[in-house]
C-alpha cells in the first residue's frame, strides 16, 4: 500500500534499485527527446524569431531564441506533460498540474488586485490618504468615504486568521450572504421563473405546423419534467403517465448535454493537437 502511495505520488520511495534506474532512464530519455526536438525546430526555423513580437534574448547553436520561442517550448512541454496522464499518473503530469495550480491562483490574485482592490478601494479612497496625509500632495477629486464600510468588513474577513477574533469575519460573510440572498430573490424570480414561463406558454400558431410542434414540445417538456420532480403527490395514473414522459425528456436532454460536452472537449483536444503540430513542430496543415 505504501509503495502504491509512493508510486502514485511520483516519489519513487519503496522502489528496487532496478526500478529506480529504469524510471530515471525513462525520464532522461523523454526529457532528452523533448530537448532534441526543440533544438532541431529552432535550428531548422532559425528559431521562433520569425514570428511577430518578442525580443532577442539568446543565440545558442546558431538559432535565435526569443521570449515567444521559449513560451512555445514551455507550452508544448506543459501540454505533453499533462497528456502523459492518459498513459498513467506520473511525475511529469504532477509537476505540470502543481505548476498550473500555482499559476492559476497567482493570476487570480493579480486580477483581484487590479480589478477589485485597486479599482474599487485604492483609487477612490486609500489613494487620498496615502498622497494627501502621508506625502502632503494635492490630489484632484474627493475620496469616497462610504468605502470605509467594505474596507472594515474586508479587514474583518481577515480576522479569521486570529482565533480570538474569528467571529468578526461572520459580519462580512453575513453582508455578502444577505446581499446575495436579497438581490437574487426578485432578479431570479423575474429572469428564471417568470420569463421562462412566459416563453413556455407562448401561443401555438397552427398556421405554421413546425412552429406549433416546437412550441408544444417545449410546453409538454417543461410541464412533464416539473411534474416528475414534484414529489408531494404519488406518481400514479395520469400523473404517473406525465411523469414518465418527463423521464423521457430528461433522458433525451441528458444524452444531448453529454454529446454536446464531449464534442466541446473534442474541439479543445483538436485545438491542442493542431497547436502542437503547427505552432510547435512547425508542420503546416493543409485545408
Amino acid at each position: 500500500m505504501a509503495d502504491a502511495d509512493n508510486a502514485a505520488a511520483g516519489t519513487g520511495q519503496g522502489e528496487t534499485g532496478r526500478q529506480r534506474a529504469l524510471r530515471l532512464a525513462a525520464v532522461a530519455v523523454l526529457l532528452g527527446t523533448f530537448a532534441a526536438v526543440n533544438v532541431l525546430i529552432f535550428q531548422k526555423e532559425g528559431g521562433h524569431s520569425l514570428r511577430a513580437g518578442g525580443e532577442l534574448v539568446w543565440k545558442p547553436l546558431g538559432a535565435t531564441v526569443t521570449w515567444e520561442g521559449i513560451g512555445i517550448v514551455v507550452a508544448a512541454g506543459l501540454t505533453l506533460a499533462l497528456y502523459s496522464f492518459l498513459y498513467a499518473d506520473n511525475a511529469f503530469f504532477k509537476a505540470a498540474e502543481h505548476l498550473y495550480v500555482g499559476v492559476g491562483l497567482g493570476y487570480s490574485l493579480v486580477l483581484a488586485w487590479f480589478q477589485y482592490i485597486k479599482a474599487e478601494l485604492y483609487v477612490p479612497l486609500v489613494k487620498y490618504w496615502v498622497r494627501e496625509s502621508w506625502l502632503g500632495e494635492q490630489v484632484p477629486g474627493r475620496p469616497d468615504w462610504k468605502l470605509i464600510v467594505p474596507m472594515i468588513l474586508g479587514l474583518f474577513l481577515l480576522a479569521r486568521f486570529v482565533r480570538r477574533l474569528e467571529w468578526m469575519s461572520r459580519w462580512a460573510f453575513a453582508f455578502i450572504i444577505g446581499l446575495g440572498a436579497g438581490m437574487s430573490i426578485p432578479l431570479f424570480i423575474d429572469a428564471q421563473v417568470l420569463r421562462q414561463v412566459e416563453q413556455t406558454i407562448a401561443a401555438v400558431r397552427f398556421d405554421a405546423l413546425l412552429v406549433a410542434l416546437n412550441t408544444l414540445v417545449l410546453l409538454v417538456g417543461v410541464i412533464s419534467v416539473l411534474i416528475y420532480f414534484y414529489f408531494s403527490i404519488e406518481h400514479r395514473g395520469a400523473v404517473g403517465l406525465v411523469s414518465k414522459i418527463g423521464i423521457w425528456f430528461l433522458m433525451i436532454s441528458f444524452g444531448a448535454s453529454f454529446g454536446y460536452t464531449v464534442m466541446g472537449r473534442m474541439a479543445l483536444l483538436v485545438g491542442r493537437v493542431q497547436w502542437l503540430i503547427q505552432d510547435w513542430l512547425r508542420i503546416p496543415i493543409q485545408g
Binding site: I177, I189, G221, F249, S253
Partner: peptide
C-alpha cells in the same frame, strides 16, 4: 438542443430557482 433539451433545462431552472428563493428567504 433547441427544443427537448431546452424544455428540460427550463424546467430544471424553474425548480432550482424556486429552491434558491426559498433558501434566500430562510437566510434573510
Amino acid at each position: 438542443m433547441a427544443y427537448p433539451n431546452m424544455a428540460v433545462k427550463r424546467a430544471i431552472l424553474i425548480g432550482v430557482t424556486l429552491g434558491m428563493v426559498a433558501t434566500s428567504l430562510r437566510i434573510i
